[in-house]
Design a protein around this nucleic acid. Structure first.
Ligand SMILES: [Mn+2]
Ligand SMILES: [Mn+2]
Ligand SMILES: [Mn+2]
Ligand SMILES: [Mn+2]
Lengths: 218, 218
DNA sequence: GTATAAAGTTAGATCAATCTAAACAATGAT
DNA sequence: ATCATTGTTTAGATTGATCTAACTTTATAC
């Protein structure tokens, strides 16, 4: 059974693989806030276990076994976040830290029960897909709000990143997933967008923010 | 912050203190399934932290600081068990193993929320008291079923031990906490007791079982 | 009271996960 | 092609939690 540390490395590798191209040791060590030698020795360990492809000085990647293991940890993480929000009333900005710990609990029954009680949710509170029991992920191709044009009416469905601060910021603007947004105008100079939503809300969102908001055309 | 291992030692020491007299290293090492030298070095470590009283070759005991810490871990354990049973539908025989892990999660908010959602329960699914936020425990003085006499009508309120097997056994006899029991007869030779309950259930319980069932006179 | 048994301690090793310092390899800029 | 920068690896140490083997102290039994 993978240790807590091993599970965190697998998860980090999976995430890095999905949002960048080649993974270097330094990416991994930075993401996990450990030194490169630490990451290096853990990668060797995971290699021994057949979970990562590794050759000296080459980029790192997960084997299919590794991908599956990683997906299952991510499944536990996201089910937990969803459970904390839906069943325990936590705000979406509070749940990541807790899930980071709960994801390591060894009890298939616990996560199966969360899944059932939640009605087999497909996404977590930040709009990220929840892998199924076999580690399969249904990738949706969403658009960034920043790519929308004036007049577009779209639904906010997910976030590309969900730091505490970003979530707090969205809270302060009353922005939440599922919301319909109207793009009023786009400033070509800096990419600022004016959007309106919820009857009488109107906000100017920076390009930096719009890049992180994923939307779906109805 | 106490590590997972440290928390387990504190909890073991607390439990040993409440159900035996003097605590020897061997009791501790046996309870935690580690070697005596391992327990010995951990006890020294906890002593350094002011959590246990320790002098070479003398019995071990928790300091008041240690007792409080231990109680708070037990609080987390029992709240978790209660939450799993009441809110997630687990059987009382399934929850100990999960709680053994969840009790180490560092998130006061998680346990506060469990407590609220449960309506600040005073006892866990096995009838053991849940310490309050300050680690205070309300000790109830229950009677053992084995001390009851024919004709007694009492309520089953707690268990002195709750191993998986014992809980399964109780399940098979449809015995659960809160139930009213009538003592029909007691066999003086071996202490076997005939009890009736739930309209039409009638069972002979061994002395071994009756010792582990705690009851309250209405 | 001494011998034996039980319980506790010390010493020394291991293993996972981490670190720093130093050496080495690949890249890419002149 | 050379060299500097960047990224990777090795070496060696540390810390927490564990172990076994050997030794010491305390308790128990004749
Ligand atoms: Mn998360
Ligand atoms: Mn984690
Ligand atoms: Mn328990
Ligand atoms: Mn535990």
């Amino acid at each position: 059974m993978a240790s807590q540390a091993e599970e965190n490395y697998l998860k980090a590798l999976f995430t890095l693989a999905s949002d960048s191209g080649e993974i270097g040791l330094s990416d991994l060590s930075e993401m996990l806030q450990v030194s490169t030698p630490t990451a290096n020795s853990m990668v060797k360990n995971l290699h021994q276990q057949g979970l990562v492809h590794y050759e000296k000085y080459k980029p790192i990647s997960l084997t299919s076994k590794g991908k599956k293991e990683a997906s299952l940890v991510i499944r536990k993480h996201r089910l937990t976040e969803m459970y904390l929000v839906e069943k325990m009333g936590f705000g979406w900005e509070k749940v990541h830290e807790i899930a980071e710990q709960v994801e390591h609990i060894k009890s298939p029954a616990l996560f199966e029960r969360m899944d059932e009680l939640l009605g087999h949710p497909k996404i977590d509170p930040h709009g990220s897909p929840i892998p199924d029991r076999n580690g399969k992920i249904e990738w949706k191709s969403y658009h960034k709000l920043s790519e929308c044009k004036p007049g577009d009416s779209i639904r906010l469905v997910a976030l590309t990143h969900s730091s505490d601060e970003f979530l707090q910021y969205l809270n302060s603007k009353r922005l939440s997933l599922g919301l319909m947004l109207q793009v009023e105008s786009v400033e070509t100079f800096d990419g600022n967008m004016a959007i309106s939503y919820l009857k009488n809300h109107r906000e100017i969102l920076s390009a930096k923010v719009c890049e992180k908001l994923l939307v779906e055309k109805e």
